[in-house]
Amino acid sequence: MRNLRLIARMDIKGPNLIKGIHLEGLRIIGDPQFYAKKYYENGADEIIYIDIVASLYQRSKLTQIVKKTASNVFVPITVGGGIRSIEDVTDLLNSGADKVAINTAVVKNPDLISDVANKFGSQCMVLNIEAKKKSKDKWEVYTDCGREKTGKDVIEWVKEATSKGAGEILLTSIDNEGTQKGFDTELTKQVSKNTNIPVIASGGMGTIDHLYEVVINADADAVAIAHLLHYNKINLIDLRKKIIDKKIKVRIFEQ
């Protein structure tokens, strides 16, 4: 059995850590450096930064934030938002990112997945999916941080992207994101079933039972947590203990 990864997800707008609901209605939380360091010290297994307006304005400002973070956070850092080319990926990796999460640009040009995977390795190429429910077992891929429809079916897209060399999937349910009502377990289950690469469930965690459900019933390899951490509703040290009590395997974190 693999060990579940607990990932702190940090959405960024300009210089600030922010939090929204359904990827909209953003509230400023504070300085990303402060939070990244805190989560690292509390045992986050990884950090994810997503610049949530970068795609809209076709730019990414995250390099400076990533550079500062990488000087005192020694766990893997994934960065997404506004990445359009091999040059953008190179810039972020040179700033201290370990992986890049790409949505909009790979939907427009799926071959970018192979380009990134061939140059930097599959482990670097995280497919970022923003999914919105269409019917009981159908989800549609959205881009530009949940703003644009694509007409693409999530499961078909997962298969295509896996075959092109994606190394991991960051799967965000737009419907559940920011609601604390739980992950979209059915979505996660269908995606896990249709790929052999790791899946990070993102969007909607409100309680530890939600985590249990998405790991046990939907085979998630990792969970991305935002709201609960940013609003200090749970801390990672306590969460890890509770997960161990539930007999889910995680990294034992002690200092």
Partner: peptide, 19 residues
Amino acid sequence: PSIDSLKNILKIPNIGWYE
């Protein structure tokens, strides 16, 4: 190996924290 002794399919690359 992409399959373990109990015939479970393993997700590759293996990503995560192990002891």
